[in-house]
């Protein structure tokens, strides 16, 4: 279990799009993580259609990146949620959707500027989004990215080690 921390020290997933090779392993491990069996073969054989990946790889040609909920500090999805299902945890900063409370009105989809909330229609209609794998040391999409295209760190670490460079040198702009 990760340490609880306020939003400013909150660890987030940062995207290094230059390093994404579009392998989609992040999507696969996300699906497995959110499956019932948690086993890759079983999940794919039996549960696949019901599990939406909560990280999304976008790709045109050789240009690709993986994106998931940014856990915004002023999260518009929380603001727009009519049921109280979408909440930002005051201690961890993680934005999660309480699936029991969600009524599938899609207000969150309407306002998320990243477009990273999806409709889960496998059972009762609910919004599906990244929960930052709160019970893991490192979210599985980051853990299983073979090329460090996703990094899990807090803001300070990000500033010391700018995203987009492997060595930590300042990114030329």
């Amino acid at each position: 279990m990760r340490e609880r921390h306020g939003d400013c020290k909150m660890k987030k997933i940062y995207i290094q799009e230059e390093y994404c090779i579009g392998c989609r392993l992040c999507e696969i491990y996300c699906q497995v993580k959110h499956s019932k069996s948690k086993k890759i073969i079983k999940a794919f054989k039996e549960e696949m259609i019901d599990i939406l990946p909560r990280v999304l790889v976008e790709e045109i040609g050789y240009n690709s990146f993986a994106i998931q909920c940014r856990h915004c500090s002023d999260a518009p999805c929380v603001e727009a949620c009519i049921s109280g299902a979408m909440q930002k945890n005051k201690n961890t900063g993680v934005v999660t959707c309480d699936e029991d409370k969600c009524v599938g009105c899609w207000s969150c989809i309407m306002v998320c500027p990243y477009g990273v909330i999806r409709r889960n229609l496998s059972g009762k209609k609910i919004a599906s989004k990244c929960d930052l794998c709160i019970d893991e040391e490192i979210p599985v999409c980051v853990q299983n990215c073979p090329n460090e295209a996703l990094k899990f760190m807090d803001k300070d670490a990000k500033e010391k080690n700018p995203v987009g460079t492997k060595t930590g040198r300042k990114n030329e702009k």
Binding site: K12, Y14, I15, E17, E58, E59, I60, N63, S64, F65, I67, R70, H71, C72, S73, P113, Y114, G115, K155, K158, V163, G164
Partner: peptide, 17 residues
């Protein structure tokens, strides 16, 4: 997002939020 204008795309993808 991949279809967005480059600056705004970068802002969304690389930014803090």
């Amino acid at each position: 997002i991949i279809h967005l204008p480059a600056d705004y795309k970068k802002h969304l993808v690389v930014g803090e939020g």
